[in-house]
Design a protein around this nucleic acid. Structure first.
Ligand SMILES: [Zn+2]
Ligand SMILES: [Zn+2]
Ligand SMILES: [Zn+2]
Ligand SMILES: [Zn+2]
Lengths: 174, 174
DNA sequence: TTCGTTATGTTATAATATAACATTATTTTA
DNA sequence: TAAAATAATGTTATATTATAACATAACGAA
């Protein structure tokens, strides 16, 4: 996940150097939470304690996390929680574009650019699990055009690329 | 799913007219099975009765099917079957590129062009479930380039576009 | 035929997600 | 403010998807 602020939200995410984002700093998490708070406020939605807590957990995770991992963390935090607890919170966050869900491994990660709705491409490392959200408008536009040729109107694009990340490739080549 | 033979395996699948493929004809199924037989033979792999039967079921389905649906059908056919029965057969077929798995809805569909390995784009109708495999080399190439900018080596691309198919859009607009 | 390998059968269980209904919290309206 | 309506959460049960582990059977090579 790449965090806003440190770079423009264009093609090149700050994530191109992997080290910089393995462990999001507490400031970055705070920033995302602040953005979410503002965004929910604007939309007249309740950013409840539970929803905030789940978003925080997702943000703090250095990698996409599973729902049941979040459930464990909620319980460890002392809160009474069951699967619907976390799934409902995740559903809310997904609807608001604050998190993304990766279909290929059933995990959730914080959106790097929750400001505007967008389709994203995810680079998922099969070795270390590190996952990077990249915004390549060109790709999505091209997909939309191609789908249009088949008279198909895209509602949601799931583009998940699995492979070796830079670091793992280097380690692997040695 | 679009069937080979009726058109070249390029951008435009025969699938662009949806009606032509809702119910694959028995000839088309036979053709796919024959291709699979040949392909396994070439690779010195055993295209066992179970594997053939599962591929047939996937081919005959007019839409991508779930593993447990296949399991039911296997049982209805009189065969003793449990989840591993179908998952193992599906794993084999996936490895050989004879079927694809859709991560967004946990379903399986026969590959339209099992001859050569490929990355494909899937157009999944959220209304009727109809799913079309399209081969737009351009998209995959572009994805590969974009990923390359992040020093990322793609092993597998999952590109699944959910939306309204031509027919459903027409019905919807009225 | 014998042996090693591969595939399948079988039972149990893991992992992911939702249904249904009760309770609590919040907002709206009177 | 009080009552009613709405939204969120708690709670229990269950559905859905997938795999682990070990036994048996089929197959292929020697
Ligand atoms: Zn995003
Ligand atoms: Zn990696
Ligand atoms: Zn294919
Ligand atoms: Zn449709």
């Amino acid at each position: 996940m790449c965090y806003p602020g440190s770079a423009t939200m264009t093609e090149q995410c700050p994530h191109s150097d992997m080290t910089s984002c393995t462990l999001p700093s507490s400031e970055q998490v705070t920033r995302l939470i602040d953005q979410a708070t503002e965004l929910c406020d604007k939309r007249n939605l309740r950013f409840t304690r539970l929803r905030k807590q789940v978003l925080e957990l997702v943000c703090k995770a250095e990698q996409p996390v599973g729902a049941y991992h979040l459930l464990d963390e909620l319980r460890e935090s002392g809160r009474s929680a069951a699967p619907p607890t976390v799934y409902r919170a995740l559903d809310f966050l997904l609807e608001q574009g604050l998190v993304h869900r990766l279909a290929t491994n059933n995990t959730y990660l914080a959106c790097a650019h929750p400001q505007q709705p967008h389709a994203a491409v995810f680079l998922v490392c099969s070795q270390c699990g590190h996952t990077q959200e990249v915004h390549t408008g060109g790709v999505i536009d091209q997909l939309r055009r191609q789908a249009g040729q088949f008279d198909f109107a895209i509602e949601h694009a799931s583009v998940e690329l699995t492979g070796l990340c830079s670091r793992c490739r280097q380690l692997h080549e040695q």
